[in-house]
Simulated assay, not measured.
Amino acid sequence: MKQTETTSNSFRYRRLLRFLPAVAWMSVIFVLSSRTGDELNTLLPWFQKMFPFMEDFNWGHFVSYFILALTIDYGIGAKADRIRMKAVIVLLCGLYGITDEFHQSFVGGRMLDPLDLRNDLIGAALCTALIAVPPIRRLWRKAAR
Rank of each mutant, 00 (worst) to 15 (best):
G97T: 00
D100V: 01
I98W: 02
R118H: 10
K86S: 11
A80M: 02
G60K: 01
I67A: 13
N58Q: 12
K79T: 07
N119W: 05
N58R: 12
I131Y: 09
H61Y: 12
I122T: 06
T128P: 07
I72V: 11
L92Y: 07
M111W: 13
I98C: 08
T99A: 12
L115A: 10
A132F: 06
N119S: 10
L91W: 11
L130Q: 05
F53P: 01
C127F: 03
G75A: 05
V90H: 10
I122D: 05
I98H: 07
A78N: 10
S64R: 03
D100M: 06
A69Y: 01
V133N: 10
A78G: 06
A69F: 00
G109D: 04
R138L: 06
R137G: 02
R84D: 12
T99V: 14
L139D: 11
S64W: 03
V63W: 14
A125K: 04
V88F: 12
K79C: 06
A143Q: 13
S64L: 02
I131G: 03
R110D: 05
A87Q: 12
F102R: 09
F106Y: 15
M111S: 15
S105V: 11
T71R: 05
L92N: 04
G77W: 02
L117N: 09
R110L: 03
F66K: 08
R84Y: 15
N58H: 11
Y65L: 11
L139K: 09
D113E: 11
G94L: 00
W140E: 12
M111C: 15
D116K: 04
L68P: 01
R137C: 06
A80R: 03
L92M: 10
T99L: 11
F66T: 05
I136D: 09
L139N: 13
L130P: 07
G94Y: 00
I98D: 05
A80T: 00
G109Y: 02
F106L: 08
M85D: 03
R141P: 04
D73Q: 03
A80D: 01
D56A: 15
G77I: 03
W140A: 11
L95C: 14
M111I: 15
V90W: 08
T71C: 15
G109V: 00
F62Y: 07
F57M: 13
T128K: 02
E55G: 11
R110M: 04
H103W: 02
F102G: 09
P135L: 01
Y65Q: 08
P135C: 00
R145K: 15
I83G: 12
A78W: 10
G97A: 07
L112D: 12
V107H: 04
S105M: 13
A124D: 00
D120S: 03
I72T: 06
Y74C: 10
M54C: 13
S64H: 04
D73G: 05
L115P: 07
F66A: 14
E101D: 07
S64Y: 05
D120L: 01
H61V: 06
D120V: 01
N58K: 06
R137F: 04
A143K: 08
A143M: 13
L91P: 02
A80I: 05
F57C: 09
P134G: 13
P135A: 06
L117W: 04
E101K: 03
R138K: 09
I76V: 09
D113H: 04
Y96R: 03
I83N: 15
T99P: 03
S64N: 07
V63T: 12
I98V: 15
F106V: 03
